[in-house]
Design a binder for these strands. Structure first.
Lengths: 115, 115
DNA sequence: ACACTGTCTCGACGTCTGTCGAATCAGAGA
DNA sequence: TCTCTGATTCGACAGACGTCGAGACAGTGT
């Protein structure tokens, strides 16, 4: 269901360890960009912290003061960034987080001891 | 020298642990947004990994195929997001990373064991 | 087959963003 | 004080983004 772009970068020495190569920056920045909107950051949190690892769009939409299409658009952005996965089951669509990428981003931002 | 906005959020239970409150999302998303551009992500890396903890703008600018004003604009964005600090010494301006915020963001993205 | 509900796509809109060239500001040195 | 160099600000422009309403699509149930 998704147009999953992004981020197979083998992996990621912390940002602060050595200069991030151009290609890695290009591959990883879309994920940060996707998290760079308050609505999407909260959506991401709701999805990642959901009971059973997944959550229905029907539970996400009413949590915001925004229209359905707008939430849908934000979810598509998260999907395109490779941060979440979507699955339709009957009438409802469920989203789940992709922990591997979250971990990759976390590792990238990790600051080595001392600095 | 800087217009330092942003991010005193006391701190940050991981994204995946419980739903991020609206205010926290509003406070933290600008930092992710700032990292959501390939040029800024690479700038951030160059600054954070610099020898002696700081780096001169004059060393940053020639590393990109962009004009001085454009680099300056990106650096201002990083400053406004609270990710870096700037200090002028004589003719040159030096940038250094603010590790506390990087660590905060890393902690936020950390995925608890198992998930 | 039909209607109903949940979700997504499409088109439009105003705003924000990345980029540049030109102009300005800040120190150093003569 | 004048000039030179490094860095920032200003103004402009094209393109991207967040939001909405209207419409289309997908399944369910009658």
């Amino acid at each position: 269901m998704s147009k999953q772009a992004a981020v197979d970068v083998s992996c990621c020495p912390p940002l602060a360890e050595r200069r991030l190569p151009t290609e890695a920056a290009a591959a990883l920045s879309p994920a940060f960009k996707a998290l760079g909107d308050p609505v999407r950051l909260q959506l991401m949190s709701m999805i990642a912290s959901a009971e059973g690892g997944e959550i229905c769009v029907c539970d996400l939409t009413p949590a915001f003061d925004l229209t359905g299409p707008t939430i849908s658009h934000h979810l598509r952005t998260l999907r395109a960034a490779g941060l979440v996965d979507a699955e339709r089951r009957g009438t409802w669509v469920y989203y789940r987080a992709r922990p591997a990428i979250l971990r990759q981003l976390a590792a990238l931002l990790t600051v080595p001891q001392g600095r």
